[in-house]
């Protein structure tokens, strides 16, 4: 909850500054709550409207678990190959 605003503040300008894929490495994130999920969904929606790609990589078990409860894993691109190319 306390980090969601910071994440939003970091990611939002990237969509305006870069016209490329944005890859979020979650390997250092052991815990995510509903506000974190909502933040990432907002960024995904933003990426759709700006036609940028938005990918999540290296999901830890704790984070993957929460995504599974929301049944949102299929909505996000979480392929590790996203880092290549």
């Amino acid at each position: 909850m306390s980090s969601s605003t910071k994440v939003r503040d970091i990611l939002a300008p990237l969509f305006q500054e870069y016209n490329k894929a944005i890859i979020v490495d979650l390997s250092g994130v052991s815990y995510i709550d509903s506000s974190g999920i909502v933040t990432l969904v907002e960024e995904l929606q933003w990426s759709h409207s700006s036609q940028n790609k938005f990918r999540l990589v290296s999901l830890t078990p704790g984070v993957k678990d929460v995504f599974e409860i929301t049944r949102l894993l299929t909505v996000f691109d979480t392929k590790e190959e996203a880092l290549v190319g």
Partner: peptide, 18 residues
């Protein structure tokens, strides 16, 4: 509803689900 992700209500969804 999980298909309608917006701020508010998602935490309650987790609680009810678990």
């Amino acid at each position: 509803c999980v298909n309608e992700i917006k701020p508010g209500g998602l935490g309650t969804h987790f609680i009810n689900e678990i």
